[in-house]
Design a protein around this nucleic acid. Structure first.
Lengths: 342, 342
DNA sequence: TATTAGCACTCTATCCGGTTGAGTGCTAAC
DNA sequence: GTTAGCACTCAACCGGATAGAGTGCTAATA
């Protein structure tokens, strides 16, 4: 365990490096931070810290920078978790009020707000459609040959698709099919429907109804799309402000990754545990971000975890601030969603 | 007007610069392109071309690069417009088949396909909801206090929103309100509704019905959102492969622009005329892309222009290829949309 | 008269050696 | 245990020399 003085020095190194992105030496620490000890002493302590693996040197005569282990210790033991100010809270509420007109926009705006406050890329994973429960399906007539199938879940998600129907289909027939499906599927979770229930139904009922087949295939397709298009990004250009991304090739790597929604979903869903979680450098499983850090948090609706929010940036990030923002979203995004009629 | 030899030399310069991104000199042209004339002659011709403004020099002893005027002449007079191959067409069709499950995905996939084929950023402006005609509105019950308002247009677009209702609202009452609205608005274009009709109605009917108010406000909000969230981007990382974007600050400028959907909408909608249009450098009105080129095309559904597709990149781009791809999309995207049930 | 060879010139990019400055580790004194 | 002093290291910066690609001009050539 580190003694008090080492902690203070480590803290100074991290604070300085986070704000300047430059390696820092003993002399500078002594000058900028009033620790009451000389550069020489700090040098000795820094040599120890390096031996212990908390800081590292790029080359023999450069200053030190925090290592992943250093950041980890900082986050776990040194960080006095700040909370965001009243001022910021009211700003956030204004931002939502000004921009959000419908539920999907909450996610996009959340991503924007988080990135604006943290100066880093933010990711918002919207609730998985498949966790919802099927409520009912309805046909809305469009013209002679087409109807819109609308699927409604208990939480009010609506999914729709246009299908062709035989020309001579009667309204009664449509209603009968809808009733049959609703009767069988109402209250069943979409997960379950996808997994097996659909097959069961198909064998239970009149197999020659092409309308029925079409309606079922819509349900299926509504279920299979749910994994996609559910990640909202904010502030991707913030990356380019970070000195660690001066190099275009590094930017390319990260941006390519951010374009792969499926990958992002997987990364975000892998988030273990509730609350705010910090993953530093190598702790990230996906190799493309092994020199980045990611702070993740879940959020809840009706007491159930439904989605994940995250901030991605260089390991040199303002962990305190970011954790505070995500902490806030973790505990308030649910309410906000409710407010905008989820 | 340029004589034949000057044209050939200009063509050689442009071809070479487009593929290498390096200024090219007389000696190299003579070596690489078999024009049957000596470097000295080429030098004289190049001096003329520079005087005429078709090419330019970065400094006295560098090779020449095409100017905007040069590219313009190339596009207008030198370019033998290629068409994309059968091979590529079947590739495209496969890509759509593999990815697209619903109508919105057509736009995203179109953007991806275009950028993949052109190696540049692509933009797809989805059809404006507001050009459609209101068909009807329907209430779908959710629970005691909430219903989903579904708005259907004649082309099959569906927009939905959840609203609160007074607890004791009867089904008949809902139907009556829906009928009243449908009666009045059916067949009216959404543009017109937004512009004025809504105000008229409000005064015509029972003003104390809060349900009625809520339904109308949903119609309004469904109309006001239509300008947003309708631009799909593809291949933003392609930018980073271009040597002209080696500089992170330039990348930042463009990427920031690409994040502003409203701006993109404006730029894309400004597209004058039908068919494929090329805007080179300064020809672009928006100052942020004055050193880029943009190739735009419209696409149609039912014989009506409903949206725009575009490719954005450095002025040094493969105009021929890009125009061919957009030409194809211009004439086929309509069908593709129909195929996926627009 | 149009083309070409030859030549002097220009300008960038690159390499190289010297200098500066921030930083270190070690040792000896406090 | 702390600190001052000192020799040492290394990246960054600067300036001069060089190489190379390219030009424009002039005179010779077909």
């Amino acid at each position: 365990m580190l003694d008090d003085r080492k902690k203070k020095i480590l803290q100074a190194i991290i604070n300085d490096y986070v704000s300047t992105a430059e390696p820092i030496g003993s002399r500078t620490i002594a000058r900028k931070y009033d620790l009451g000890i000389s550069p020489a002493t700090i040098r000795n302590e820094m040599a120890d810290l390096e031996l212990l693996g908390y800081i590292e040197q790029l080359h023999t005569s450069s200053g030190r920078i925090p290592s992943a282990k250093g950041y980890r210790f900082f986050v776990d033991s040194l960080l006095s978790r700040p909370v965001i100010s009243e001022n910021e809270i009211s700003l956030i509420s204004n931002w939502y009020g000004a921009k959000v007109r419908r539920i999907e926009e909450v996610f996009q705006e959340t991503a924007r707000i988080i990135s604006r406050m943290t100066h880093n890329v933010s990711l918002v994973l919207a609730p998985q459609f498949s966790h919802c429960t099927f409520k009912y399906l309805q046909f809305l007539p469009l013209d002679d040959r087409r109807v819109i199938v609308v699927i409604v879940t208990d939480s009010g998600f609506v999914e729709n698709k246009i299908i062709d129907i035989p020309e001579d289909t009667t309204v009664e027939e449509l209603q009968r099919v809808a009733a049959a499906i609703n009767n069988r599927l109402s209250g069943v979770s979409l997960d379950a429907i996808k997994a097996s229930v659909l097959k069961d139904i198909r064998s239970e009922v009149i197999p020659d109804s092409s309308l029925f087949e079409a309606a079922l295939s819509v349900v299926t397709s509504a279920l299979t799309i749910d994994k996609k298009e559910r990640v909202y990004l904010g502030g991707t250009t913030q990356l380019l402000n970070q000195p660690e991304f001066r190099d275009v090739d590094k930017v390319k790597n990260i941006l390519s990754m951010l374009e792969e929604e499926q990958l992002l979903c997987d990364i975000l869903q892998a988030g273990d545990g509730d609350g705010v979680v910090v993953k530093i450098g190598q702790e990230n499983k996906y190799s493309g971000i092994k020199d980045c850090s990611m702070v993740q948090a879940t959020y809840q609706v009706e007491g159930q975890v439904v989605g994940t929010i995250a901030v991605l940036g260089p390991t040199r990030m303002e962990y305190g601030k970011i954790m505070a923002v995500l902490e806030f979203m973790h505990s308030h995004l649910g309410e906000i969603l409710k407010k905008y009629k989820m």
